[in-house]
Design a protein around this nucleic acid. Sequence first.
RNA 1: GCCGGUUUGGCGGAGCAGUUACGCGAUGGAUUGCAGAUCCAUUCUACUUGGGUGCAAAUCCCAAAGCCGGCUCCA
Length: 477
Amino acid sequence: MLKVYNTLSRSKEEFRPQEENTVRMYVCGPTVYDYPHIGNARSFAVFDTIRRYLEYKGYRVYFVTNFTDIDDKMINRAKEEGITVADLASKFIAEYRIIADQLNLKPASINPRATEHIDDIVEMVELIVKNGKGYAVDGDVYFDVSAWKDYGVLSRISTEDLTAGARVEVDEKKQDPRDFALWKAKKPGEPSWDSPWGKGRPGWHAECSVMGKHYLGLPFDIHGGGQDLIFPHHENEIAQSAAAYGIKTPVKYWLHNGFLTLNAEKMSKSEGGFSTAREVLDNYDPQAVRLYLVSGQYRQPLDYSEKVLKQAIQSLERIKNAADTLRGRITILERKGSRESKADTKLSEAVNKLREGLQKEMDDDFNTPGALAEVFTFIREINTHTKDVGGAAVLRESLAALIELVGILGINLTLEETVASAESGDLLKDAIELLLELREDARKAKDYSVADKIRDRLGELGVTVSDTKDGSTWKMS
RNA sequence: GCCGGUUUGGCGGAGCAGUUACGCGAUGGAUUGCAGAUCCAUUCUACUUGGGUGCAAAUCCCAAAGCCGGCUCCA
């Protein structure tokens, strides 16, 4: 039974989607005005893992994540760079897609953009005004927080404290400092759309309410985002949806990931730091970065440093080696024939334990570190028993399980299997096998200079050869 | 000021009442023609501090301290 921590109740709740076997989830995507930073990457990776696990459990997941392509930051940055807001958006959406690809994020069901839903937004704002929960002033439209008694349900910020908040800007147009913009009147040089209040553009919070409703219907099951979005963004989303559509809450489970913290001193000193996702992904194996990002429980803060990245690289290596060990043994058994042995049973049991254990951990609010522990326990079993396994079937089963389960965490172990599937693969494969046969003869004759030459030269060509007690294995690197 | 989180071994990071987390690193040993990979052992009877409850507390309760974050457009 899956339990998820719901920010709304501040407790773990049994997860029950409204429609059986289907999960509808929405994750706040980036504002595409700049390069995504490593903190954004964490959020992407976390919710991708959650989505993949739900799919592993058999749910059909509708996964919507947006691009905010119109807001103050977009406008300011476009002005600075001397390009249009639309061009700025294209540039950084492209950038996002590169990062998403490197992080092995499964493509969303859809990536809607705020500017594609202006009509829907206008419609929602009209409803809010019509329902007496919003008011227009000089082309701006504000949400009337005083008219929504449940304001603060999610963030648990009392409205009195809010007024006293350090960063509330005084705006004469607002009836109350707590009120927030639903629609902003056009200023000179800004992109704008027609509305009943004149030309203008949507407030930030409006888009997510609208797109969530449009693609998933209200209420939907999961809404995700960083903890910094709890207030005001998600609080306002709830208020908007409730005020416009008359429903109590637009979302059943609110999930928020913790921050990624940087050791500021350390980072700032090391050549400009590693603040953008791109810098990190260019400097480290993207798979290791992904592993690092899910190495902590998603609600906990996660510290970033060069050291932990290096640890992740080593951990990833251990996972890859285990897959290679299985593959190597499979090729050896293909050569010498398959005959089951006692070790087969042990490995088979380990596979079952892995599946059970991983599910138990992930069912507990997506405990990815726990899941990784299960994976590594399984890997030890692989390393202990594989050399004695006589049946190829259990090896294939183990490999498939390993690939599938680390796949939930976003680690792709099939990337290195390219050779075998290539058109020319068979010829190449046979040629390498032949060389290894010759090498084996040389080794038997204790002619190690020839044996080492074959291994070294193959190594130069990108073929790594390893010896085991029952023969040699190879892989393309 | 208000609200929230966090404090576990050399490092990362689970556990959330009773037994080895797991990974990385280090050291020693084993296996191997060598290399790579791997296994075993040690570091590892660790849990911010002070009280309390319990047969039993890292784990529950109370208090304090440190660190981090949110408080109108930042994942």
